[in-house]
Design a protein around this nucleic acid. Structure first.
Length: 282
DNA sequence: TTACCGCTGG
DNA sequence: ACGTAGAGTG
DNA sequence: CACTCTACGTCCAGCGGTAA
């Protein structure tokens, strides 16, 4: 079940509000005796990539007798133990076995080994009970009963408020969260579907950048792939990232017309970015 | 070793 | 993740 | 007719695999 991007009131009594955790979506199976498996949104097994979480789940689920299936988000934790951004998980998405010491990341020693945690926000099955056919409020009650006090800092449940998300929204602004998810309190769980029962309320962060170049487009994309962006550190232009999404066809054309006549030979950034496609500088 | 592709998360 | 076109819905 | 929803194609970062 996936959320739709939409506006929603922050004080609707039929809605519940949760932080939008910025990590990797995961379906969690805890079998009898603690047989644990993690699955990604595309149905790929992630069990081997998060051994800390698996160990914690095994320990917690050791005396369970029946299958439990949860839905949640795997997040990286900052040094205060608070959920931090998706970026800190990027290096582990593809790692087949983080303990093996094999592979590029292990060789380079660059994997930061951020602490991670599982934040469960839904329950799909507990033994013979198929919770997907039960309303969200009932699922939430079951989740809190079963998973609220795991005794492990790695195993948590999402924060959730009912009816009035204004305080949570203020907190999201103050802490720079990605946004909130607003869910219909009586909605059912629809596996694999994107539905308006869950609404994604995005928070727009602002920052002014200087365009230092662009990259060639890939495939059937027109004009350019991404803009190369920097911010000034005194007199130095420091490359800070690419952005390629968010452009309509018209906007791609307009920006290209502005930027193409300004092309120069030398990279204007203090730190030359690595790009997927050929860069052009302005 | 390096460069590129393909795949996966968002 | 986003944006678009075309299908679906009212 | 206008609006909403879905399917699809594309974006970045990063890793693994393979070719050079």
């Amino acid at each position: 079940m996936l959320a739709s991007l939409a506006d929603a009131p922050l004080d609707d009594p039929h809605l519940v509000y949760e932080p939008k955790y910025d990590g990797i979506r995961a379906i969690v199976e805890i079998g009898p005796g603690g047989a644990v498996r993690l699955w990604s949104r595309l149905g790929n097994e992630k069990t081997n990539q998060f051994p800390e979480i698996v160990t914690a789940l095994q320990k917690w689920g050791r005396r369970r007798k029946e299958l439990l299936v949860l839905d949640g988000e795997i997040v990286a934790l900052d040094d205060k133990g608070e959920p931090s951004g998706f970026q800190n998980l990027q290096g582990r998405i593809h790692v087949l076995d983080p303990t093996s010491g094999k592979g590029r990341a292990a060789e380079k020693g660059v994997r930061p080994l951020f602490a991670v945690a599982l934040i469960a926000f839904d329950i799909l099955r507990d033994g013979r009970i198929d919770y997907r056919t039960r309303p969200l409020t009932e699922r939430r009650a079951a989740l809190e009963r079963i998973f609220a006090r795991t005794g492990s800092p790695l195993l948590r449940i999402s924060r959730q408020v009912r009816g009035d998300g204004r305080a949570l929204h203020d907190e999201a602004l103050a802490r720079g969260w990605e946004g909130l998810i607003a869910k219909h309190a009586d909605s059912l769980y629809k596996s694999g579907k994107r539905t308006p029962d869950w609404k994604k309320l995005k928070i727009v962060q602002e920052q002014e950048f200087v365009v230092g170049g662009w990259t060639d487009p890939r495939h059937a994309r027109s004009y350019f792939g991404a803009l190369l962006l920097g911010v000034y550190d005194n007199d130095d232009l420091v490359y800070v990232g690419h952005t390629g999404t968010g452009f309509t066809e018209k906007e791609l054309a307009r920006v290209m017309a502005l930027v193409a006549p300004l092309e120069i030979k030398a990279c204007p950034f203090r730190n030359r970015p690595k790009t997927n496609e050929r860069p052009h500088w302005v």
